[in-house]
Structure formats: C-alpha cells, structure tokens
C-alpha cells in the first residue's frame, strides 16, 4: 500500500512542475506593472525603475524564472508587497482558516446530500425525490454571496442566533494554540470548550452557505449512481435471496455507488476552495481566497504564485486521498494499481 502511495505521488511531480511554470508565466503576462503600482501614483520614472531593479523585474524572463525556482527550492515563496510578510507565513496563517471552513461545509453537505440522494433513488418519483431535485436546483442557482448575505440577514440581523460575521473568532477570545490550525479541532485538543463554542458560532453560518452551494452535485450524483446500481444484476440477486431492503440498499448498493460520489466529492472540494473567495468576503473570514484576490488586484505576483502553488499541491494531495479511498472501497482498483 505504502509503495503504491509513493508511486502515485511520483506521478504528481510533472503536474507540479507544470503548475510552477504556468503560474510563473501567468503572473508575468498579467496586465499591470507591479513596480509602478507600489511606487505610487506620484512616483518618478526613476523611482519606478529602482523598484523594478530591486524586485529583479528588469531581468530577462529565464533569469527571473531561475531565481524563482532557486527560491522555491529553499522554501522561500517571496514577500508579499502589500502585507510585507513572507508569503509562506501568510499562507501558513490563512490556509487552515479556508481549509477548516471548506471541510466543514463539505461535511455538512455530505451529511445532508448523501442520505437525500439515496432516498431519492430508492423512492424514485416520490415527494422526497422531488424535494431532492428542488433543493439541489435552488442550491446551485443561488450565488454563494447571495445565500451568505441572506443567512446573515436572517440568522444574525433578524433572529440573532449567530454572532456578527466578523472572522473566525470573537476578539473577546484568544485563538487556541496552533496544532492543526483548525480552531474547532485545536480548541477541543486544548480542552477549551468555551473557545470551541465561540469558533463554532462563527463558522457554522459560512459553512452552511458553502454546504448549500455544494449540495446539488453531491445529491444528484448520489441519486444517479444509486439508480444505476439499484438496477444492476447483483442487487436483483440480493433481493431474490431475501435480504432486507436496508441491507440491499446500504450494504450492497451504496458501497458500489460510492466511487462516482467520491470522485464528485474531490471535484466539489476543489471548486469550493474557489467559491470560498466570496464567502470569505461576506463573513470577513481571514482565509486564503480573499488574500489571493487582494494580491491579484494589486499585481502582487509573489502571493499569487504562492496561492496557486499551494492550491495545486492541495489538489494533488486530495487526488491521492481519493485514490486511496477508491482502493479501500473497490478491490478491483487495488489490483490494477
């Protein structure tokens, strides 16, 4: 198994090299002159070219690229010109915030969407099937910033069930000691229930926003995949052997229907990381999406490169995880690998 994982990781190396090259080129061809931006509107021509020389932007592209790769090899992602911090530190501080939000959103979504999809498939054409379709359609049709604002309006402004949407933790509390970077997990590890509750009260609303958005693909895929499996021969055999519906649906059909659902989960996770940007804006979440957008607007190329690279690595790891899960679900995949 370990050998397979290492082998599988090795196949990701070319794609990471590709990502490094493409992000580098992309940030160079983007419109906007970084040096001019940071020199300010009143800067003289000379001041701008000084900054340019300082940043190494006056060098030819291959030279700049070599310097970038050399820095990468030592773990140096450059400094953000806006925050003045090393990009690596910024990402390290912000990525867990985004990841925690996304994972929780995905978890909530799976908890609702998978049972909904199974029920919709088992009772095809019933009210629950129509409900599944309605919820799924509504979820994808509403943009995340809209559902986010709506939820804030209802649960914060009208009902007062949620605190003000101002980040990960009320400034009243101090964040727990960093172990995983996830406040929910770290506070529990530290045994601090107060902080856990405080961070939960902050995170549930944005997580629900993301969950509503990602409900549709998961529920629809579960339904379609279950329908296909329920019509297959071995389910008929199971029924003809007198197994209980529960065993047939959950024990036989669902495990077989899981593969496409797991694939969808991977895809949903990656585009939730993208959709995060808007949610982070609405809830003032100090995540990596809003950070990358800021950087992109100001032509601050180092954070953009760092962001894309971090996402690519995350995506590679995610795919690796999915492959391992595949192997656990389906013995046939284990053999072929």
């Amino acid at each position: 198994m370990l050998k397979q994982i290492i082998k599988r990781m090795a196949t990701a190396i070319p794609s990471i090299i590709g990502v490094v090259i493409v992000t580098f080129l992309l940030t160079r061809v983007l419109p906007g002159d970084t040096a001019a931006y940071f020199a300010g509107p009143a800067a003289s021509e000379q001041a701008i070219s000084e900054i340019r020389a300082k940043l190494g932007l006056d060098q030819p592209l291959p030279v700049q690229f070599l310097a970038y790769v050399k820095d990468l090899a030592t773990g140096n992602l450059g400094n953000s010109l806006t925050t003045g911090q090393p990009v690596l530190d910024d990402i390290r501080a912000r990525l867990p915030a985004s990841a925690e939000l996304t994972l929780l959103g995905l978890l909530l979504s799976v908890l609702v969407a998978v049972p909904l999809g199974i029920l919709a498939a088992v009772r095809q054409g019933s009210w629950i099937d129509h409900l599944c379709r309605l919820v799924a359609t509504a979820g994808v049709s509403l943009p995340v910033f809209f559902t986010g604002l709506l939820l804030v309006y209802v649960f914060y402004f009208k009902l007062g069930w949620a605190p003000a949407p101002l980040g990960r933790l009320d400034f009243f509390y101090s964040p727990p000691e960093t172990i995983t970077g996830f406040y929910l997990v770290d506070s529990l590890l530290a045994g601090d229930i107060e902080v856990f509750r405080a961070s939960w009260s902050q995170i549930w609303l944005p997580a629900v926003t993301l969950a509503i958005f990602s409900l549709a693909p998961i529920a629809r895929m579960t339904r379609a995949s279950m329908l296909a499996v329920l019509a297959s021969d071995f389910v008929r055999t199971a029924r003809a052997s007198g197994l209980k519906p529960r065993k047939v649906v959950l024990g036989y059909a669902f495990r077989n229907a899981l593969l496409p659902v797991v694939t969808t989960l991977g895809m949903v996770f990656s585009f939730l990381l993208g959709a995060n940007v808007l949610v982070e804006k609405v809830f003032a979440w100090p995540g990596i999406g809003s950070y990358a957008i800021e950087a992109l607007i100001t032509s601050d190329y180092a954070p953009v490169q760092g962001f894309v690279l971090a996402m690519a690595i995350l995506y590679v790891l995610l795919n690796l995880l999915i492959d391992i899960v595949y192997g656990l679900i389906d013995p046939r995949v284990r053999i072929e690998a």
């Binding site: 071995f234 055999t237 199971a238 077989n256």
Partner: peptide, 24 residues
C-alpha cells in the same frame, strides 16, 4: 415474501459474474 425468498424459493441468473456483488 421476503422471508420465503432465498429460504424456500431461490433464483439463479444469467451472467453470473454480474449477479454477484463485485466488491464483496
């Protein structure tokens, strides 16, 4: 009927490979 199926009356099918749960 479910109590009878598999205990009192059973069925075997065409395409035996597909008639078995592939991952169990």
């Amino acid at each position: 009927v479910r109590a009878l199926r598999g205990r009192e009356m059973s069925m075997i099918f065409q395409n035996p490979r597909a008639a078995l749960n592939p991952i169990r």
